[in-house]
């Protein structure tokens, strides 16, 4: 992993050095994302790049991480941006606690900081005496939309299982809570709830086993679409077409599954536009607008047949 880090820092250093040499009086926005190995963030990056080109009145410097939990290099990226004196930092934190201190430092250096995608931890912010608004989707609300769609199709007493994301990840927790909200509201029966670490193959294995243990399952709530794909394959292998599946993210691969009814619904949180929106908000503040407060919710939408 050390080699990986070294290469990354060199690349980052070169990128930042190059950027400074080019800078003119346009405001500079530093965009810090999570894993570019994730289709979701890859789309987001493309959306931001297209946005920068379209607006043309700011300079974008984007940095991505190697994996979802690589907060160490996110901290370094923030420090590099501070040194460079960018006008705004727009960040999707890899860890909602670890990122509080470096971002506070950035804000103290007079940089406009916008937190999007995943909210910083409220307690950690309070502890460090740092106020920062959050621009992002309501993962819990989104999961509840998917859960409600499933609950309405099944009716009261429907027997469901949850396939969770990475234990401890903020969006995984929020989505599970959203599913549980639907379960409570529509009086569904939760038979089992397990993690498959966001992964298709693991979801396939874990869910087949859950189905063996509970053949009476009627509905499945998967915390992302990659896992929903694994669940759908498991259902096909078991020859069960009576079980409804909902997911989250609206990745390309689930399009055909929703169209032919193998999946009931998913949730789109418009990842492509998310970074671009956050950048818009940042530029408004840089141009002298009022600072953001509280939670600026970004749109989410239920996708069905």
């Amino acid at each position: 992993m050390k080699i990986q880090h070294t290469i990354k820092y060199i690349a980052l250093g070169v990128a930042l050095g190059f950027g400074t040499a080019q800078a003119d009086d346009k405001p500079v926005v530093g965009l810090i994302m999570k894993s570019l190995a994730n289709e979701f963030f890859q789309n987001m990056l493309e959306g931001a790049e297209a946005h920068a080109e379209e607006r043309g009145d700011y300079e974008l410097k984007a940095v991505g991480m190697q994996n979802e939990t690589d907060f160490e290099s996110q901290i370094n990226a923030v420090e590099n941006f501070i040194t460079q004196g960018v006008d705004a930092i727009v960040v999707a934190p890899a860890d909602s606690r670890a990122m509080v201190r470096p971002l506070k430092k950035a804000a103290a250096a007079g940089i406009t900081v916008i937190n999007f995608d995943v909210a910083l931890d409220a307690d950690a912010k309070k502890q460090q005496d740092f106020e920062l608004a959050f621009v992002g989707p309501d993962n819990r609300g989104g999961a509840k939309m998917a859960g409600d769609a499933l609950a309405k199709a099944l009716g009261e007493g429907g027997k469901v299982v949850i396939v969770e994301g990475n234990p401890g990840a903020d969006n995984a927790t929020e989505r599970r809570l959203g599913f549980e909200d639907s379960i409570a509201e529509y009086k569904l029966e939760l038979l089992d709830s397990r993690t498959a670490h966001w992964e298709t193959e693991e979801a396939n294995s874990v869910f087949s086993t859950m189905l063996t243990a509970h053949p009476e399952i009627q509905g499945v709530m998967a915390a992302n679409d990659s896992m929903a794909v694994g669940v759908v394959k498991a259902l096909e292998a078991a020859g069960r077409d009576d079980i409804l599946v909902v997911g989250f993210d609206n990745i390309n691969a689930v399009g055909p599954m929703i169209a032919d009814g193998r999946m009931l619904a998913t949730v789109d949180q418009f990842g492509t536009a998310m970074a671009a929106n956050a950048i818009d908000q940042a530029l408004e503040v840089v141009a002298g607008g009022a600072p953001l407060e509280g939670w600026v919710k970004t749109p989410i939408e239920l996708v069905t047949q």
Binding site: A37, T200, K233
Partner: peptide, 11 residues
């Protein structure tokens, strides 16, 4: 088995 090719498979 899964009818997909994912670049993040097999971690």
């Amino acid at each position: 088995r899964l009818n997909i090719s994912s670049p993040i498979a097999g971690i």
